[in-house]
Structure formats: C-alpha cells, structure tokens
Design a protein around this nucleic acid. Structure first.
Lengths: 172, 172
DNA sequence: CGATCTGCTTGCATGTTGCAATCAGTTGCA
DNA sequence: TGCAACTGATTGCAACATGCAAGCAGATCG
C-alpha cells in the first residue's frame, strides 16, 4: 500500500481512494447488484473488467478498509466479500453521482432507472438502503418492519420492468 | 475525444468523466480556489500537477463540456477558464466527497475546514454557492442580497483562521 | 476419474502518467 | 531597442497502469 498522500484535502484523499476507473464500479456492483464473489463481479460486470484488475482492486479496497473477505462455508475456495461501514456510507455519493450523470450524460433508460428512484427517494431511502446493507454485510439487526420490500429488490424490480417494457415500445 | 462508453450506467458515465486522479482536483481549485488561469492552477496546486497533465485535462474538460475558455483582455496569451452549468452542479458531489473524506480519511485540519462548513451549511449553502459561481462564470444575475459575504470568501476566511490558529496551538 | 468451477496470477502489448526541459509569443521595464 | 519575465502550452523519456488471453492449483460434482 502506498501510504503517501498528495495532500490532506478531503476531496483529494477521497479521490486517492476511488479516483480511478474501476474501484467505484466494483463497489456499485456489490452495493446495488448484491454481488459477493469474485466470479459474480467478473462475469456480471457490464463494463467488462479484466480479472487481474478486479483482483488488484479487491485487494486494494481491502487494504483501504472498504471491503473485508471471508470464507464461504459452502465452498472452500470461495471467498465472500463484505462491505465495511466505510463503504456503506458511500451510498449518498453513489446517489449523487447517478443523479448528476442522469442529467448530463447519455445514460441508458434501463440502467438509470435505479438512479432515478434513488434520487426521488432522497436521504430517507438512502438511509433505509444503508441499513439493509449493514444487515447484509455487517450482520446488524434489521430496523425496517418485517415484510417491507427491500430497497435493492425495489430497484431491481423497477429495472426489470423497464427492460420488459422496452421491446413493446419498439413494437408499438 | 473518445466517444465510446463502457456502459450507459449513470455512475459509470460519471466515472468516465472524472474518474481519474486530476480532473476533480482541477475543478475543485476553480470552484473553491477561484483560479481561472493556467498558471494559477499549475502553481497553486498543492497536489503538484504537472503542466502537461493540466493542459491535457483542461482540454478534456472543455471537450466534455465542463469548462469553457475565453481570451483574457489584459494579456493576449492569457486564457480564462470558466465553469459551465454542468460543472457547477458538481458542488453537491464535492460537498459529499469532502464530508466522506473527513470521516474516513486522514485529512488535515486546515484543508478540511471548508468541507466541514460546506457539510454544516447543507443544500441551502450549496445553492447559494452555486448561484455565486453562476454569476462569476456565466454572468448570471446575483440572487443573494447585496452586502452578503460570498460563500467562497466565508470558506476562505475560515481556512485562514485555522492556519493562523495553528502556530498558537503548537506553542501553547 | 475427469470435467467443471473456484479465486487468482502471469506474460505481453499498449496506453497513460509524471517529471524536467523546452517552446514561441507577449509584456513590462530600462 | 534590448532583454528578462511571464503566458499557455508541447516534447522526450522512463515508469507505471491497463486490458486481453491463457494458465494455475485446489475443490467440487457426477
């Protein structure tokens, strides 16, 4: 690990953590895609990350304290990656990044529906989502009332609804 | 300009814009430092950007629509860089990045006071600041009542106060 | 026992970065 | 007029990062 810093500016230090083309993408897939294994991250990546880059970034993110790694009891060679609180608190930043991208960049409809819902839900939704992640990744007790649809499932359902609607829109 | 995108995901597209180690640093210096010229950005950079990288990033940010360039009437070879609305709307993201960095990373006190104030001020302060930037960079009319201290000046004053206090703290 | 899956590494070609030096044109001053 | 300082860049070069394809050893399944 390189422990030298260019400056003590918070924006700079944040950029030193995820100011590259892959780190946030990996965290995004873990946070919103629910991926926990190396292969899931590798094969599920729509951006097509290379395996050596993925391995390098996972290692880096662990060293930086954003991820932890544990054995998967179902398979002795499988590893489960978990978010730390440090990574979970990136949810608002992800939401803002998504909102900004939706306004200014050529986003695709199906991939931006999640960002749209996250933006509309605002901080209350982000908090709910972060609590879910804490439960999932840190084993924290669930705070949401039982039976409530999880935020990730809501986002996923909305995504699938857009995908399902797409061919109809083309046909009609 | 590379117009190929890895995916239409808003987070990914945002990362393609400023997912590198310098673009946001440059925008930060323009937004919070009020720097408008090449030399100001080059010599004022605490992170020590190289001139070729600066030239490259300024060009890139212009092509991406985050900056515009105009002649400085006082000097035929001087250029003035201005933020576009696209760049001004990054203020909330900067604020969140700063807030996150302040919590999790080894920030220095004097360089994080701005982030602290920005966080405490919340969206209302960000909006005021963005209006100031619109006035400064886009020639928009000022919305704040006359006589109000500008947000940038407030942040700058707070920074200088911390710097001035520092030697005392060491001595006493 | 062999096919497949696991996380991860290696080799290699290419692209990006950072540093120092340098560029030509502009300006201010003597 | 002469000349140093300053303007926004550009160049050469070494180091580093990236992406792709192939390969690794151990675990699991049938």
């Amino acid at each position: 690990m390189n422990t030298e810093h260019r400056s003590g500016c918070p924006i700079n230090l944040s950029l030193e953590v995820f100011g590259d083309r892959w780190s946030l993408i990996i965290l995004r897939d873990i946070i919103f895609g629910g991926r926990r294994h190396f292969r899931e991250l590798l094969n599920g990546s729509i951006e097509g990350i290379a395996s050596n880059i993925l391995a390098d970034r996972l290692k880096r993110l662990m060293e930086l304290g954003l991820l932890t790694k544990a054995d998967d009891p179902s398979h002795k060679q499988k590893a489960i990656y978990s978010l730390t609180e440090m990574a979970i608190t990136l949810v608002p930043i992800m939401a803002h990044l998504g909102a900004w991208g939706r306004v200014w960049l050529p986003v695709s409809e199906e991939l931006s529906i999640r960002a749209e819902l996250l933006e509309k839900g605002g901080p209350p939704l982000w908090d709910r989502f972060m609590d879910e992640l804490r439960h999932e990744h840190l084993g924290a007790p669930v705070k949401t009332p039982p039976g409530t649809a999880t935020v990730r499932r809501q986002l996923q359902a909305a995504y699938e609804a857009v995908v399902a609607r797409k061919p109809q829109a083309t046909a009609g």
